[in-house]
Design a protein around this nucleic acid. Structure first.
Lengths: 332, 332
DNA sequence: CAGCCGGGGTAATACGTATAACTTGACGCG
DNA sequence: CGCGTCAAGTTATACGTATTACCCCGGCTG
């Protein structure tokens, strides 16, 4: 009634366990005659044999499994990062397991053990870096996603060209004549957002005005933040730069509630280019972040690190997608 | 340079490996004196000892890991299912690993092995049921999510009360005076959607009209489907029942492109209650599906099955959330 | 004082696999 | 004919843990 082992297959086929392992391992060509190999394979499938991965992992000292640490999977961006990472992993016979509920809601007394599998390496989003040492991931090969290249020492880095993205946003808005800006920024403290904020500040030349409001990354918070910011009609911003499409969508909505038309009275930009960006009306002008590619490169980097190859790559380029939420600055 | 084992801890502490295992296992109270226990624990942390999970899994014959099979994590609904399942799992010292890229895009020659970990059980969404036997999951304890209770024999089931959800939609729209309906249905063949379609057909009494258009679950497809359906001004539907918020959002957009106002000229309803539902304008009237609870109950069910306890529970209730995308049927 | 008990620990083992090291027969070749 | 070679397997072992069965010794009891 219990699952058949390689030894069961061996006795059933009248060979030794080693032979079974050799055949099914598909290495060592010529070690086993084609005739017995076929016999072994046939009995294996007949018995429904599945290798015990725990045993194999123990023997090989490697699980071919990576841990992906992200804040929340319900954020489409990170779901896509996972997808990309899992794809590349599968191509190399690797698996990807997620660190559950790092948002702090879950219990996970021993978060490392809760991954249940021995791990070969860790890919961590900077937005979840605080969880890293609790995981014990600092003792494993590590790849950081979107984190300060100067900070995390030896770890490999996969970064998006956030500053350049912000440059594109700024130039686009300046060309449209905007001079008074509001930065609807994430309340999360991370390299990602810091870099953007810094880029925005430096790129906006003299003769411009910039206010910043920090808000959690939810549409509701965006709305209340907006209502406060747009209250005064005179001197109010004409362009809202949001750190996130969700914020941007919330901003558009708040604007309309306040009787402002987008983009005629107010331009709004986002980041990420989620499905949401084209679902709302007007469709969002936003910086497209190739999330899948982040995951892919993260996994590629980890594989390189595991092989001892030093890995480095230029920042992943991002591109502004101009849609309908931005337009010429109002005449006043 | 290699990771310390329990034996390393043992020699360092001057005890036997068995003692280390006993202490760190925290069972068998009284088997070890408090003094040596403290010594062992101290050396363990000093050496940075982490138990080798592959070895433990092999020894115990169980990995405390479940496989969750879903179509795509980028769909917020399934991301939330995962979150719920992972939470309950963590509470019981279990892990959840995802079946990567079952949408067929990925390579995954041996999808089962690509889970990399030996598994204790499987939780499978019916929308990915076709992948099940390829995974070999049919030989493991199985919990089915939203699948035909009559179909999958012995497996435990966790179902949403889809028919009741559709009933609420129908009654809401009928009460608003609608008589001509369009069902924007998913192109995917599954119990979920079949149940809804059947419920809709039976609930709409005489004197009503129902057309059905099947479409992939993307906003773009929804739009083209809509444009075809609404082309003829006379006899066009006044209420659009969508199988999904994404479809609903697409439908709203298409309607506006065609010069129809929502909800004045056209009512639209969705399913799921994703974040999208409140991000678009008008906010969607939609059937709220407690996705997290699906994941939680799925995991709970699996845990019960693993203990040999027969598990059964009533369908998870769903509730219509009335927002701004539905209104009285237009006069004509 | 012998016998027994139990606290506190240890030695031994099995889990299922991959692979290194060894065996065996057949065969070719000098 | 004897030896090296090679194909085709097999035997043995280790991976690191959890747990069972055992052991030792001090103290209590009859």
């Amino acid at each position: 009634m219990t699952r058949p082992t390689s030894r069961d297959v061996a006795t059933a086929a009248g060979v030794s366990q080693a032979t079974v392992s050799l055949v099914l391992g598909d290495k060592w060509p010529g070690r086993v005659s084609e005739r017995t190999a076929a016999l072994v394979r046939e009995t294996a499938t007949r018995l429904g044999y599945r290798p015990n991965l725990a045993a194999r992992n123990l023997r090989l000292g490697s699980t071919r499994t990576a841990l992906l640490v992200v804040p929340a999977l319900t954020n489409e961006f990170f779901a896509r990062v996972y997808t990309g990472a899992a794809r590349v992993a599968a191509e190399h016979g690797f698996g990807v397991v997620l660190y559950p509920s790092p948002d702090g809601t879950g219990p996970a007394r021993d978060p490392f053990a809760s991954a249940r599998a021995a791990l070969d390496g860790v890919i961590a989003s900077s937005m979840a870096a605080h969880a890293l040492h609790a995981i014990g991931g600092d003792t494993l090969p590590l790849v950081m996603l979107d984190s300060d290249p100067r900070a995390t020492g030896s770890a490999a880095h996969v970064n998006l060209a956030m500053a350049d993205g912000m440059r594109q946003v700024t130039e686009h808005l300046l060309a449209l004549g905007h001079r008074r800006f509001l930065h609807l920024a994430s309340a999360v403290d991370s390299w990602t957002f810091d870099t953007r904020a810094e880029a925005l500040t430096t790129l906006l030349g003299p003769g411009t005005e910039l206010r910043t409001v920090r808000s959690p990354l939810t549409a509701d918070d965006a709305r209340t933040a907006m209502e406060a910011a747009l209250a005064a009609p005179q001197g109010r911003p004409t362009a809202i730069v949001c750190d996130d499409d969700i914020l941007a969508a919330g901003a558009c909505k708040a604007a309309r509630r306040l009787g402002l038309r987008v983009p005629e009275d107010l331009s709004v930009t986002g980041f990420d280019d989620l499905a949401l960006a084209t679902a709302v009306e007007p469709e969002l002008t936003t910086v497209h972040l190739p999330a899948e590619r982040v995951g892919e490169q993260g996994m590629t980097a980890l594989l390189a690190v595991l092989e001892g190859t030093p890995w480095t790559a230029p920042d992943i380029p991002v591109t502004l997608v101009v849609r309908d939420s931005t337009g010429p600055a109002p005449a006043v």
